[in-house]
Simulated scan of single mutants.
Amino acid sequence: MFDRSYLQSPLREYLSWIVTKIKYQSKYKYLRVGYMSKLFNTTFGKYNWTGNNVLMINSSIGDFSYISDGSVINETIMGKFCSVGPNVRTAPGKHPTHTFVSTHPAIYANPDCCLKNFQTKDQHNPTRTVVIGNDVWLCANAVIADGVKIGDGAIIAANAVVTADVEPYSIVGGIPAKFIRKRFKDEQIDVLNESKWWDKNIDWIDENAQLFLNIENYCNFHKK
């Protein structure tokens, strides 16, 4: 088996990044790709940006969402206006913890990274896709496990490890992440869920930007 590391060099990596940056920023007018970021089979909306050294694989993000330095976004469907802090990980992969004799991937799957595999296909086959709603904040160093769904408006605290679904407008934290509190009152959350402001056109958001500075003003406006 050929050792591909012989082909790696700073110049090769830099040129690869330049090709990626030109390719994606030519396709998406309102996109900025940070230094040495790598993108594979990724789609964007409008006004997106990635920080430096970001890796995105088989993922999509909606309008205005951004990914900060060092994050790895894998197998993820992300909504609009999401804020992803530095060194966040999504869908990092799962190993079987019962039934299978070993947790080593060479025993139950056939990953490219292993020099020798004992299976011809993945026998574990977990549900990998992470689904993240709109207006979600993933704080620094958060890890979102494979198959997790995070509702609109949720906040994932720094260093949290999320292994279960998160309800809309909930704040969770810890290892494993647990519910801390809701961001707003239930009736305010109902207004936000109904109004779906992230789907309104940019002109409407621009004209009503002051409403976003106070949840009570926003809700009163939508109750009229």
Rank of each mutant, 00 (worst) to 15 (best):
S5R: 14
Y6N: 12
Q8A: 10
E13A: 15
Y14P: 01
L15F: 13
L15N: 12
S16I: 10
V19I: 05
K21E: 01
I22K: 10
I22A: 08
Q25G: 05
Y28P: 05
K29T: 13
K29P: 10
L31M: 06
K38N: 11
L39R: 02
L39F: 03
N41Q: 14
T42D: 00
F44Q: 09
N48M: 14
N48S: 14
W49T: 11
N53S: 12
L55S: 07
N58D: 15
I61G: 02
S65L: 09
Y66I: 09
T76Y: 01
K80L: 06
C82Y: 03
S83W: 03
V84P: 03
N87F: 12
N87T: 12
N87W: 09
V88C: 03
T90R: 01
A91E: 05
A91H: 04
T97C: 03
F100L: 13
F100T: 14
S102L: 11
T103E: 13
I107G: 04
A109P: 08
P111I: 13
P111H: 07
D112V: 08
K116T: 13
N117I: 14
N117W: 11
F118G: 03
T120Q: 13
T120Y: 04
P126L: 09
R128V: 09
R128N: 06
G133E: 01
C139I: 00
A140S: 14
N141A: 08
A142Q: 06
A145C: 15
D146H: 07
K149Q: 09
K149D: 06
K149F: 10
K149N: 14
D152I: 01
A154C: 05
I155D: 01
I155F: 01
A158P: 00
N159E: 11
A164S: 15
D165A: 05
V166S: 03
S170I: 15
I171Q: 02
G173S: 15
P176I: 03
A177M: 02
F179R: 00
F179C: 00
I180L: 08
R183Y: 05
I189V: 04
D190T: 12
N193W: 05
N193T: 09
E194C: 07
E194L: 08
W197R: 02
W198K: 01
D199A: 10
N201A: 05
N201T: 06
D203L: 10
D206S: 14
N208G: 03
L213M: 13
K223W: 05
K224T: 14
